[in-house]
Amino acid sequence: MSEVINKEIGKKGCCDIIEISGLNKWYGDFHALKSIDLKVKEGEIIVVCGPSGSGKSTLIRCVNYLEKFQEGSIVVDGTELSDDVKKIRQVRSEVSMVFQHFNLFPHLSIIDNLTLAPIWVHHETKQEAKEKALQLLDRVGIKDQADKYPNQLSGGQQQRVAIARALCTSPKIMLFDEPTSALDPEMISEVLDVMVELAKEGITMICVTHEMGFAKKVADRIIFMDEGQVIEENKPDSFFNNPESDRLKLFLDQILSQ
């Protein structure tokens, strides 16, 4: 089915930037990911959803090798992930991640949080890195907080800083791991707004999220996972209006009835 859909999304890039094939992962005896196959085209916006424990976070954490896997392969922009540290760093320099709990560095000011990777990983000068960081902070609407420390900001502001930090290295791919799940309800929209803006700009995104409004608005494809496997995968329209599997119907009932 994904083949068909990818053809329909002709406006997106020509090539697969992420190729996951036959991916299997175990935690001890627990089979966390079961033979996952997934191809993502350049510029595609993928939303991954599913009940907790379904393996969706584990899946995207495999893409930048925060989680090791035992079987299968992941190729990111031509680099196949393995234990080779050089290859891991190569992939990580092109892939940025936004975490559920922000994970800003509390001992560094906002501006230093943003410039750390550009200076040390991408060898930019302090001046360059700082200018770009201020531009990005401006884009996410918190330029005036640049000299504060993370703990002085609200949750929503911290997550926007985290997004700016992720963008600072000009990544080709952005991974979002439940970016709004730890936020107070009134702060969710300010983060989603930033993500919607980002989606319009053509960066490849994989988002694990329960925000179905966001998925409807920007996703090219939605993937539903349960018990470590991909159960259903579809365009937003069909995904919400014509779910095929019973598991997905149940999930949508639960999540949309709230």
């Binding site: 990580r92 994970n103 800003l104 560095f105 990777a117 990983v121």
Partner: peptide, 11 residues
């Protein structure tokens, strides 16, 4: 999370 954020940014 601090280790992961540092890893993810390629340090």
């Amino acid at each position: 999370g601090q280790y992961e954020a540092a890893d993810a940014s390629g340090l």
